[in-house]
Design a protein around this nucleic acid. Structure first.
Lengths: 155, 155
DNA sequence: CCGTGATACATAGGACCCTATATATAAACA
DNA sequence: TGTTTATATATAGGGTCCTATGTATCACGG
């Protein structure tokens, strides 16, 4: 492992040119730009998995939403608390399980959903502007492989 | 399953399959995995831009570091506060400008730098495992284009 | 029926990012 | 020179993520 591992001239190795750093910058920029636009209809990018999971009137538990959104349970708890505070979701006791609540979208949130979706679609077009469909497909395919590798790194 | 390239149907548009969502998940996973590994030498992924900027003994101001790392000034202020608390950086008054401090790495941090760099290099190899150099180049090129688009969205 | 382990949720605490704003100093200029 | 403008940092307040831990309830085997 002392071959090319040593960064032939490793003296000026630059993490800023690494896929990880680009990805981190894109993620931050996309969240910032997306939140700025979605704010007009009262949504935020972190809420998107919850909104899509509940869009057709489904009622899911907090744990199910956390698994769907791929975040930890306390993260989802905090997110739902803000969404409840902002009138986006509602909770009702689960008659099947006294530990659990069923979460669903309020009517106001349902009504704003199409506008949010339009804003999001436009944002994705803007983010991939100048790229062909094939290039976007290539990007998503490569990202999926990196994601699989990264998720394999944990545990 | 294959012909929903367009979102005209709209009914089942899924943000979870969008480049933005993959990028967000990779960014989180990469930070989590990277922090777990770097923790062994007392570093964190958020500190990498600061570490590389100061690696050769340079002394930079907080504002210069914020610009280098592409974060806002209060974000860098908090990061530096944690790094100072942890003995990674040191501040000294700037004789040229009484508003400013010069930030530099401590000797202990300098000493741990090579180990951190090795961990990082290994992490990047793991994240791109199974991908050819050409594929990684393609990925970075596409990411750079998306990044340019995203940054153009703001402001 | 009674523990035992699994599951759902809540809470505490911290890292990292943001915007908005205040304060001190520097630089520029009328 | 005195005033305005720009810059460096600090502080306040939030959002989104994490790990670690506590508590209530469920489901199961004895």
């Amino acid at each position: 492992m002392a071959d090319e591992t040593d960064e032939e001239a490793g003296e000026d190795w630059d993490p800023m040119k690494t896929p990880g750093h680009y990805i981190s910058r894109i993620a931050r920029g996309f969240a910032r730009a997306g939140d700025a636009r979605l704010g007009a209809v009262g949504f935020a990018t972190a809420q998107l998995p919850v909104l899509t999971a509940l869009k057709d009137g489904a009622k899911l538990s907090q744990a199910e939403l956390a698994r769907w959104a791929r975040v930890e349970q306390p993260t989802m708890a905090q997110l739902l608390a803000r969404m409840e505070r902002d009138g986006i979701i509602r909770r009702e006791p689960d008659p099947r399980d006294r530990r659990s609540s069923l979460v669903s979208l309020t009517a106001q949130a349902q009504a704003r959903l199409p506008a949010g979706r339009a804003i999001l679609a436009q944002g994705n077009r803007d983010a991939t502007r100048g790229m062909t469909d094939d290039e976007v497909d290539t990007l998503v395919t490569l990202l999926r492989r990196v994601l699989a590798n990264v998720e394999a790194m944990e545990g």
